[in-house]
Simulated scan of single mutants.
Amino acid sequence: MPRLTRDRITWLTYAQLGVWGFFLYGFGPVVPLLRDEQGTTTAVAGLHSTALAAGALLGGLAFPYLATRLGRGRTNWLGLAGIVAAVAVLTLFHSLPATLTAALVAATFGFMLVNGVNTTLAEHHPVNSPAAISEANAACAGMGILAPIVIGLTVGAGLGWRPAIAVEVALIVAVAVAALVFRVRLPANIPATAAADGPPRRLPRSYWIAWLLLGVTGSIEVCLSLWAADVLRGNAGMSAGAASAALAAIVTGMFLGRFAGGWIALRVAPIPFLLAALAVSFVGFAIFWAAPIGWLAVSGLVVVGLGNAMHYPLGISMALATAPGQADRAAAYSSYSVAVGFGVAPVVLGWVADSVGPHLAFLLLPLFIATAALLALSLTRTTHTPPGVRKGPLLSPSV
């Protein structure tokens, strides 16, 4: 039976991605509150997602350079330090330029960290990387469950959302202290396989299909993170605090899905697994969108989260699997795809929402789900293997 060995390096990368999850999943519920606080439109508030997207681009550009010169371990810690700086700006300043800058800085360093974690796990667990990356993202979602709940509690208590976001700094300090106490060091240098001599090889067509897939599935997740609270307020009659806290339902579903997904990924091929996950996302969205009452809409969000759980772990695992020996470059380019999804989709949805309302605007999401399914099927065709040839990593379980 396939097994995933979790050593101290594995657990540290899980913890690092987990603290980023607290910020990432906490920032989504903050955006509608920032819109109310700053008196902007939905489309203007959506520029915070554009700032996240620009940061993802910058993080993707910086990561290969920094990983080569500093090593992935130091690059990961630099990413966490940058997130601390972004949280300080976000909590101390109230103007739109300041909050947009904070989102940009957080995403730049956050996506450097994400790339570092993904490539570290992909090469530390070369056979079982889909399972390891899934579990790391389960840690990310697990910590992300707490953020909307804490924000909902502090908003409901009249304290606002800033004290909740400031908890991120304490979490990062705790991870750093734990690494010192247990003397855990991440790999300091790029492995030889990732720094081959000569000019970089062209990434294959299958990589670029996976690249597009990451952008589309990222669009699904970020639109829900930023604007689902508005639908809960307008269509399901929930208060602002309750709607913000209810976004924890998505992250709860993602945590459960990724926790179970690590086990399933050892036994089920990535592409069929992804198609099943997209189907679950569609069912959950249908429940959420049609529900006229809060508890039913929130139940739909849990189901959406179960489906969304494996979109990114499987997508990034497939992208890295199509580019052996080029993990850092493939991971960095994947940030660009995520950036496009983060930067374009929420702004388009916000623009449509300003015209027809958030509820109708959310009908864009089934289109994203269908597009992702078509890309996954296309990836199946590009990785088809003839009879008698061993199947590639996208068409067989990670065993």
Rank of each mutant, 00 (worst) to 15 (best):
A67Q: 07
V114G: 02
S219P: 04
A330P: 09
Y333R: 12
G388E: 12
V251D: 07
G152V: 04
P148F: 02
N308K: 03
L367Y: 09
G257Y: 05
N308W: 11
A249H: 04
A188C: 05
L104A: 05
A141I: 01
L113P: 11
R8N: 10
A236P: 02
L349K: 08
G144A: 01
S334N: 12
V84S: 05
R6V: 13
L212W: 12
F27D: 14
Y333W: 14
T385F: 10
L367V: 15
V117R: 05
L92N: 01
F109K: 10
A361H: 10
M254W: 09
V30E: 05
A192W: 04
D328F: 03
G284C: 02
L214M: 12
V31T: 11
S396N: 11
V84M: 07
R329V: 04
R201F: 00
G116T: 04
A279Y: 11
G55E: 03
V87L: 00
T99W: 09
L17D: 04
F63Q: 07
F273V: 05
T380H: 14
A319Y: 02
L90Q: 12
L375V: 12
S95T: 14
P397L: 08
N308D: 14
L320I: 01
I250N: 11
A195C: 10
G300D: 03
V352C: 06
T13W: 01
V280H: 11
I369N: 11
S317H: 05
G158H: 01
A56I: 01
V340T: 13
V280S: 06
L180K: 12
P386T: 15
A166N: 00
V340A: 14
V177K: 05
L363E: 09
V338W: 13
G28H: 09
F111N: 15
V283L: 15
G300Q: 00
S244H: 01
A242I: 04
L58M: 10
I264K: 08
H359C: 07
V348W: 13
G315R: 03
L92G: 08
I271W: 04
S355K: 14
G18S: 04
A297D: 00
G110A: 07
M143R: 00
G152T: 00
P29K: 04
W351Y: 11
M1C: 10
F255C: 10
L186G: 06
G60L: 02
A286L: 12
L78T: 06
G294K: 00
A166G: 06
G325R: 02
R183S: 07
Q38I: 15
E123S: 08
G218F: 13
A106D: 07
V283G: 10
L92A: 10
A157V: 01
F93G: 01
I264S: 05
G160V: 02
R202F: 02
S299L: 14
A141K: 01
A260Q: 05
I9W: 00
V283E: 10
R267W: 09
V338T: 15
G305I: 07
L349Q: 12
S398W: 01
L92E: 07
P324K: 03
